[in-house]
Design a protein around this nucleic acid. Sequence first.
DNA 1: TTCCGTTGGAACGGTAGCGTTCCGCATAGA
DNA 2: TCTATGCGGAACGCTACCGTTCCAACGGAA
Lengths: 207, 207
Amino acid sequence: MEHKRSDVIPKAARVLSGAAVMRADVTKALARSFFEEWARTGYAGLSLERVARTAGVGKAALYRRWPDKVSMASDLLSQVGLTMTDVEEHGSLEADLQAVLLAIRRVLRHPKVRRILTDLHGEIERTPALELAIRPFQRARRERINGLIDRAIERREVSPSVDREMAADLIAAPLYWRIAVLGGRSDRAYIERLARITGAALRANQA
Amino acid sequence: MEHKRSDVIPKAARVLSGAAVMRADVTKALARSFFEEWARTGYAGLSLERVARTAGVGKAALYRRWPDKVSMASDLLSQVGLTMTDVEEHGSLEADLQAVLLAIRRVLRHPKVRRILTDLHGEIERTPALELAIRPFQRARRERINGLIDRAIERREVSPSVDREMAADLIAAPLYWRIAVLGGRSDRAYIERLARITGAALRANQA
DNA sequence: TTCCGTTGGAACGGTAGCGTTCCGCATAGA
DNA sequence: TCTATGCGGAACGCTACCGTTCCAACGGAA
């Protein structure tokens, strides 16, 4: 009974009284299989039984760590989100834009990431708990774009009264749309042109 | 056995030899419940048994019309897609843009449409047959935007060498991103500003 | 009025995941 | 070495949906 828990923090790192600790390699295998299966079947079709099976692990080992699917998803997502803290200064609005777009493309190019992300965006309306889990991602992207805009304002390339919310939409959306929704390509030339055109849009964006 | 069929066209309209025809009200109730359940549970979690139940209809009535879920979805989607043929001329690029954006918003404002659409975009990678079903929608949107660009070229507002593919991304993506992905608002002022800024982007868009 | 196919409803066997519990074994800390 | 705990694996009862089949009742066309 003791593995019925009200919190969502896994015991993975917990040191128990006088004896064994949960094995980190098992936790890792479960996390890996979880994302693998998520990309393959979607969140709704995701079976924890299958996750344990493909991880080569007993179901008990999984349920000892997480009480259910949404807790597992939230916990695992929160452990991934810390990998996009890269503030750059490239000398011009267009160059900064290109760097951000390339960073977005780098993420969206992974087929698993792409599948999980589009699935997640559909699932969030049904499972609001997931929204909380990806909020750090959104905030990281948002801060990155805010930094870009700050520098552009300093260079007097865009108006200080720019609508930052709309700017964020303008920058992230077209590339996401093209790669993740339409499944289209985006070569270097596309990114360069998109950066130039988005730059023109931002220069015209004043509240 | 006779309801195992290789095609996906429902018999709904078929007139049988000398007797009864499948009742149109039953077909309609099934279609209605299908989309209702789709919006509620997502495609993956969609159960035909539940569709029939909530339609107040026996399972046999459903399976007599469609052999399986993907056929039902494709067939029903293809019957919806014909409702966006509205070519407008509003005198300027910005005015045309605003009209298109308002039309997109009008569609995305329906919660059911929004849910089904985001779910669909995630599901397509798993069920490629669905892509075929929404192709007419994409083409309709694309033609609408093409008309807008043609008129802008005639007015010499944008270069004839404009990249139409990128233009389509620029127009549709930010609003979809804001409304469907982020779940954000988009009031009249937002649309007007977005039209103005997108106009600036298109003027700068030359291949 | 006759007749035939559709109707709602119930049931079939089969598959599958859930969340839990039990086993006997492996293992790491004391 | 001792001992407590996690381990893989198997099984539990439960629920749900699949795709099919049967039935008595209904209703429209000839």
